[in-house]
Simulated assay, not measured.
Amino acid sequence: MLLPFAKPCEEARFVSRHKRFTVLVERGGERFAAHTNNTGSMLGLLRPGGRIWLSESANPARKLRHTLEITDFHGTLVGVNTSTPLRLLRRAVEAGRLEGVAGCEGFRAEVARGNSRLDALLEGPRGRLWVECKNVTLVEDGGVAMFPDAVTERGLKHLRELAAAVEDGDRAALFFCVQHGDGRCFGPAWSVDEEYSRTLYEVVDKGVEVWAYRALVSPRGIDLGERLPLVLP
Score class of each variant (00 low, 15 high):
1 M>K: 05
1 M>H: 01
2 L>N: 04
3 L>T: 03
3 L>N: 02
3 L>G: 03
6 A>M: 12
7 K>H: 09
8 P>W: 03
9 C>E: 04
12 A>H: 03
13 R>E: 14
14 F>N: 01
16 S>W: 05
18 H>C: 09
18 H>R: 10
18 H>V: 06
24 L>C: 10
28 G>S: 08
29 G>N: 05
29 G>M: 00
31 R>S: 14
34 A>E: 03
37 N>Q: 13
39 T>Y: 00
41 S>K: 14
41 S>T: 14
41 S>H: 11
42 M>L: 14
51 R>Y: 06
53 W>N: 09
56 E>A: 09
63 K>S: 10
64 L>E: 15
67 T>S: 15
70 I>W: 02
70 I>M: 06
71 T>H: 06
71 T>S: 09
73 F>N: 15
73 F>S: 15
73 F>Y: 14
75 G>R: 03
76 T>W: 08
79 G>H: 02
81 N>F: 08
82 T>E: 11
86 L>T: 15
88 L>V: 06
92 A>W: 09
98 L>H: 03
100 G>Y: 05
103 G>Q: 02
103 G>M: 00
106 G>K: 05
109 A>P: 03
109 A>F: 00
110 E>M: 01
112 A>T: 12
112 A>N: 10
115 N>D: 15
118 L>V: 06
121 L>T: 03
121 L>I: 02
122 L>C: 02
123 E>F: 09
124 G>A: 01
124 G>S: 04
125 P>H: 05
127 G>F: 00
127 G>L: 01
128 R>S: 02
130 W>D: 00
130 W>Q: 01
134 K>G: 08
134 K>T: 13
134 K>L: 11
135 N>E: 12
136 V>I: 11
139 V>H: 00
140 E>N: 04
140 E>Q: 10
142 G>S: 06
142 G>W: 06
142 G>L: 06
144 V>H: 11
144 V>Y: 10
147 F>T: 07
149 D>A: 12
149 D>P: 12
152 T>D: 12
153 E>Q: 11
154 R>G: 12
156 L>R: 15
156 L>G: 13
157 K>R: 10
158 H>R: 11
159 L>Q: 13
165 A>K: 03
168 D>G: 07
169 G>C: 08
169 G>I: 07
171 R>Y: 01
171 R>A: 05
175 F>L: 10
179 Q>A: 15
182 D>K: 15
183 G>S: 08
183 G>I: 09
189 A>H: 12
192 V>F: 09
192 V>K: 12
203 V>E: 03
209 E>C: 05
218 S>A: 06
221 G>W: 01
221 G>R: 02
225 G>S: 03
225 G>N: 01
226 E>W: 00
227 R>S: 07
228 L>Y: 02
230 L>D: 02
